[in-house]
């Protein structure tokens, strides 16, 4: 398998090397596709990718459906293919339609790299992201610590988890990491897994509706920061539940999420460096297009950020407010 991949990589590199774009070394165009335009978490990647593109003297095009949908993503990738971009950096779910369209792009001579959400069987060159299982595990460990600090570790607890879409590989890995951290440590029952379809507004509504109807739930784990873009007063049930003793931890660190943590709504956050993903995606792909050199590993890991009470003030100084919501 590894030999086959190496052969394919060499062939692809040779094709790209002799492509007009590479030979001309004129303005390369890199297509980036986040999961959706409506999820602000990707704005870090958008900005860093633009910045990296300016540094490298290439163009970045940023295309995605406003609300996440596999169909919309397929259309966006086909648009890039039709446009004839030089390379693609995409965040996807590992679904058959996605794998098929990535293969079509590769057949057209467009190298594809994934970031954030991966589709390992699609033939993409490499993946840039976090160790999603580890991120979930770390969040689980933080949850475990808080439960023990509150003396609830010997009580049966109910847990609600929020994810994006069921086929999102990276979200599922985060859920697996989180539940693995709690396994054997707490008597936890998963009451519900909420899927917000990667839509921020829907995530807020789901959280509020669930906690309005089920205020007795004890624990909440967010596999992404979808509902963290609104002020705490905009989520009264969530706020009331958390202040009444509910424990919520999640993944994604950004200024608005930190504000919720400051207000005691969220207890712990594990952040993924989306800016690094955007920048690395452009940088490594352009490097590959120009030199044919691939990263040493198929998985390019970016580090995790942890937000606890101990470093909250420092993080609030580092992160800038987006004010997009």
């Amino acid at each position: 398998m590894r030999h086959l991949r190496a052969v394919l990589t060499v062939i692809l590199a040779a094709c790209l090397l002799f492509s007009p774009a590479v030979w001309a070394d004129d303005l390369l165009t890199i297509g980036l596709m986040p999961r959706s335009l409506g999820n602000p978490i990707f704005l870090d990647a958008f900005e860093s990718a633009q910045q990296k593109a300016q540094e490298l003297g290439v163009r970045v095009e940023w295309l995605a459906p406003y609300d996440f949908s596999t169909e919309g993503q397929v259309i966006a990738i086909e648009s890039f293919i039709e446009r004839g971009v030089d390379g693609l950096v995409v965040s996807v779910n590992d679904e058959p339609e996605i794998r098929a369209v990535i293969r079509r792009a590769i057949e057209k001579g467009i190298p594809v790299v994934t970031f954030d959400g991966d589709s390992p069987e699609s033939g993409r060159l490499f993946h840039i992201g976090i160790d999603n299982f580890k991120a979930g595990w770390e969040a689980g460990q933080a949850m475990l610590k808080i439960v023990r600090e509150r003396g609830l570790d010997n009580e049966p607890l109910s847990l609600v988890m929020m994810s994006g879409v069921p086929d999102a590989l990276h979200h599922n890995q985060r859920l697996e990491g989180f539940t693995a951290a709690l396994e054997g440590q707490l008597e936890v029952t998963v009451a519900e897994i909420l899927h917000n379809q990667d839509i921020v507004d829907l995530a807020v509504i789901q959280v509020e509706d669930y906690l309005q109807n089920n205020p007795e739930v004890d624990l909440f784990f967010f596999a992404g920061g979808w509902p963290f873009y609104v002020p705490s007063d905009a989520m009264p049930y969530f706020k009331g539940w958390a202040l009444a003793g509910g424990i919520a931890v999640g993944i994604d660190v950004f200024y608005d999420a930190l504000l919720l943590q400051r207000d005691g709504i969220l207890q712990y956050l594990v952040g993924q460096d989306m800016a690094a993903m955007g920048a690395l995606g452009v940088e490594l792909l352009v490097n590959y297009l120009r030199t044919g050199v691939l990263p040493p590993e198929e998985f390019v890991e970016v580090g995790l950020t942890y937000a606890s009470r101990d470093n909250l003030d420092e993080l609030l100084r580092i992160y800038e407010p987006w004010l997009v919501k």
């Binding site: 335009l37 409506g38 602000p40 704005l43 958008f46 900005e47 860093s48 633009q50 910045q51 300016q54 406003y66 609300d67 987006w322 004010l323 997009v324």
Partner: peptide
């Protein structure tokens, strides 16, 4: 001003408005 890297707030608002 070629300051596209700081345009996230406006880009996102425009996307949202257009959507």
């Amino acid at each position: 001003n070629n300051n596209i890297t700081n345009s996230r707030k406006y880009v996102f608002r425009i996307w949202e408005d257009f959507a």
